[in-house]
């Protein structure tokens, strides 16, 4: 039955090459923890991706309750935390995922760095990876404001003050992010929400796609 459905679709859209390009590749011995336990260091990239998927899914569910205006943002998070079934767990996953993803990214970066895996021909992929790191930090930064509690508000205040100190572009950057040269308020919250939920995820998905396509093209780096 399933085979017939598959064949029916495949005859019309030719899907086999699509998933075979993704699924059909080798895993060399030196990256396989089943053969060399020390190869667990190769797991950090995959775990980063896994936590990113957790972040995307839990984030999507959080937006079902979250309200991004300063009157209701905190209340909506409080409601989510105390009243909504499993809301505390979903928010907990998103909260801890944000930290775990940074840790995993850090470990993955160190693995690639100390193995010299960024050398020719993988220079571009390294650079894309560093950009992913920056985007992830940006996601952490913007997401931190969204609950609109004291911690969030004052952390953003600090960050924007640091940004303001940058010569030439500092004040413009602050005004762009905060929506006002002086006030951290309603505009800031909506902008951070838009950046957190639309702009940066779009950039992240594009960069991740490039990252993965390049890995597939170049293959994983050889043993040291």
């Amino acid at each position: 039955m399933l085979q017939k459905i598959y064949d029916w679709v495949d005859e019309r859209v030719d899907i086999t090459p699509l998933w075979r390009d993704i699924a059909d590749h080798e895993v060399p011995e030196h990256v396989n923890p089943a053969h060399h336990f020390s190869a667990f260091v190769y797991c950090f990239g995959g775990l980063t991706f896994f936590v990113t998927v957790i972040q995307v899914l839990s984030g999507m569910f959080l937006t079902m309750y979250y309200v991004h205006d300063i009157e209701n943002a905190w209340r909506s998070v409080y409601y989510l935390q105390t009243e909504v079934a499993h809301g505390q767990i979903v928010r907990g996953m998103h909260h801890w995922g944000a930290s775990v993803v940074i840790v995993m990214l850090f470990l993955h970066t160190l693995r690639v760095f100390f193995q010299g895996a960024y050398k020719k021909p993988r220079e571009l992929n390294w650079m894309v990876g560093v950009l992913i790191f920056f985007v992830m930090l940006g996601l952490g930064l913007t997401g931190y404001l969204l609950p609109w509690d004291n911690k969030a508000y004052f952390a953003t205040q600090v960050t924007l003050e640091i940004a303001e100190g940058v010569p030439f572009v500092g004040e413009a950057t602050k005004a762009l992010l905060a929506g006002d040269p002086n006030i951290v308020g309603a505009q800031t919250l909506t902008r951070f929400f838009a950046i957190h939920v639309f702009f940066l995820p779009a950039a992240l998905f594009a960069l991740m796609a490039i990252h993965f396509i390049m890995i597939r093209k170049q293959g994983i780096s050889g043993p040291l």
Partner: peptide
């Protein structure tokens, strides 16, 4: 990861 999320709920302070 789920054990972590359940054992330590995400903190929330008073409103800004």
């Amino acid at each position: 990861f789920l054990c972590l999320a359940v054992a330590h709920p995400a903190p929330l302070e008073g409103p800004a």
